[in-house]
Every structure is written in structure tokens, then in C-alpha cells.
Simulated assay, not measured.
Amino acid sequence: MQHLEAIEKHGHRVLNTAQLAESFGTDAKIINRNFQRNAERYVHGKHYFALTGEELKQFKGSRQFDDSLKFTSVLYLWTEKGAWLHAKSLNTDLAWDAYERLVDEYYHVKDNVIPLSKDQALVTVLRTTADLVEGHDSLVKEQQKLKKLITDVHHKVEEQITLDHGEQRRVQKGVAVRVYEFTSDGKEAARLFRELYREIKDRFGVASYKDVKRKELQTALRYIESWIPRKVS
């Protein structure tokens, strides 16, 4: 993937229309046409940001744009979810492959940031909670509150845990078994692999099958077992 100049809006990485079109191997006019035809699906602040007026002027002044953007009166910046809608509209292997690379190599990359592990995040939350209750008059009551908060935080963390390596392998094995039930041809199998992984992401609303929640593993495996391709050559 070509090097992309990082653009951030409200703490999230975004891409302008020209960058998105180049990444997807298409033209900016196609991206704009997709947006116009499906405008009701796109939500401002969720799928895109539209900069105009003084906000656009300040944003332009903060970086060096190419000449094609110099005189634009409205600048669209696309979030990860907005890029997903465009990939869905284009629905080409090139667009889907580019979208996956954007998620892995652009949208989720943060410079000079070391993410906390799940255990570190839990410890941080618990320490913050303990600091908040420190100093209260009734130690017994606050200990009870803290215990409940710890339980609640633990449940919330568990709800967000994604598949570990072994669970990802179970999904991969399930996909392979299902695909080869339909074909033994290598080229056709490759197409079915792409189709099934794409539908898993669509079904569970994730950028990669690896992001499926652990609590949904059994549901995902059953979905794979019952999956039928759109067309078998």
C-alpha cells in the first residue's frame, strides 16, 4: 500500500476522497458518486466529516495539500466505517483487500502509542476506581462498592475480549472445511475463501474475523457450518 499522509479528526484517523480512491484503485468521482447515490446510509460524524467555511480553511492551513484540493469548498474526510461502506458499494476484490490493509496499516496505527494489554487496562481502571473511593468515611461501605465496581469492570472487559490465537485457528479450520466441501479447485477455493471471510465480517460487524468477540465464537462456528456460497462454479 502506498504511503498515506496521516490525517486525524476528533482523535481518529481519516482519509480524504483522493486518498481513499487511490487506495481502492478507483477514481474520486466514483467515490463521490457512491456517496451521492447512498447518502442516506452515511452518517456525519460516524462515516465521514464534511469540512466547510472557517473549519475547512483552518484545516487546510495545518497541512500542505495538492493542487486538486486547493480550491475545494467542501472537503470530505472518511472514517474507517465510511471506508467500509465505500468498499461495500464497490464490492470488488481489490477494494476489499485495500480496505483490510487500510484497517491494519492506517486506521488502527497510532504513532508513539503503546496500547495497554487487557490485564493492564483492567488494573488501570481498578486503580482509578480505588482512588475515587479513597477518603470516604465508611470503609466497609466503600469496600462493598469497590467490590461491585470490580465485578462490573471485569464483566465489561470480558464482553470485549476478542478471539485468541487458538480460537482464530478454529475459525480458520472451520472456514477451510466448509470451502472444500464445495470445491477442490484451487482458484475457485480462493474465491470462496474471500467470500466467506467477507460475509463473516459483514455478519459480525468487524474489520477482520480476528475481531469477532470470544462470546460469539460458537455462533460464528455455526454460521460457518451452515454457510452457502452465492455461486459455485
Rank of each mutant, 00 (worst) to 15 (best):
H86M: 10
Q120A: 14
L149S: 12
S233M: 08
V103Y: 00
R191V: 15
G186M: 10
V212Q: 01
Q64A: 07
L4A: 00
N34V: 08
N32E: 08
R198Y: 07
Q36K: 05
A176K: 10
R169Q: 08
K156F: 04
A18P: 05
L132A: 14
L20N: 01
Q19N: 00
K147G: 07
T92P: 09
T79V: 03
E5I: 00
L51Y: 01
D67I: 12
R169C: 03
K173S: 06
H47I: 09
G186W: 08
E181S: 13
K141Q: 06
R63F: 05
K148H: 08
K9D: 02
G135F: 06
A87E: 00
G205C: 04
K88Y: 10
D119A: 15
T151F: 03
K141E: 12
K215Y: 02
Q120I: 07
K187Q: 11
E80I: 01
T129Y: 06
V153Q: 09
N34I: 11
H155P: 03
E100Q: 15
L15V: 00
E167T: 03
D104I: 09
E55N: 15
G11W: 01
S138N: 12
L126H: 10
S73K: 13
K201Q: 15
A6E: 05
K145G: 08
R230W: 08
T52G: 04
H47Y: 14
K60C: 14
V113E: 11
G45H: 10
K141D: 11
W227Y: 12
I150E: 05
E158P: 01
A39G: 09
K215C: 05
V113G: 03
M1K: 06
H155K: 08
A6N: 02
A130F: 14
K29Q: 11
A189Y: 11
L149T: 09
T72W: 05
S62K: 13
K60S: 15
A6L: 04
A95K: 02
H44W: 07
W227A: 05
R230K: 08
M1G: 07
E158S: 02
D93M: 04
R169W: 06
D67T: 14
E199T: 12
R203A: 10
R203P: 06
D211W: 07
K46G: 12
L20H: 04
S68C: 13
I224T: 07
D164P: 03
H165A: 02
M1V: 03
E159F: 00
L4P: 00
V171K: 01
H154L: 02
K110G: 03
S73F: 15
D202Y: 10
T72E: 15
A28W: 05
A190C: 09
G45P: 09
E158T: 04
A176G: 08
E5R: 07
Q36T: 06
K187R: 14
E216V: 02
V140I: 04
I114T: 06
G25M: 13
E167V: 04
A176L: 07
V123H: 11
L90D: 05
V171G: 02
Q58K: 14
P115Q: 08
Y106N: 00
L51Q: 06
I228A: 04
V232K: 03
D211S: 08
Y223S: 13
V74G: 14
H136N: 15
T17C: 01
K147E: 05
Y106D: 00
T183R: 08
A220C: 15
R63S: 02
V171C: 04
D164K: 01
Q168G: 12
Q2N: 02
L94A: 15
A176F: 12
A21G: 02
L146Y: 13
V232S: 09
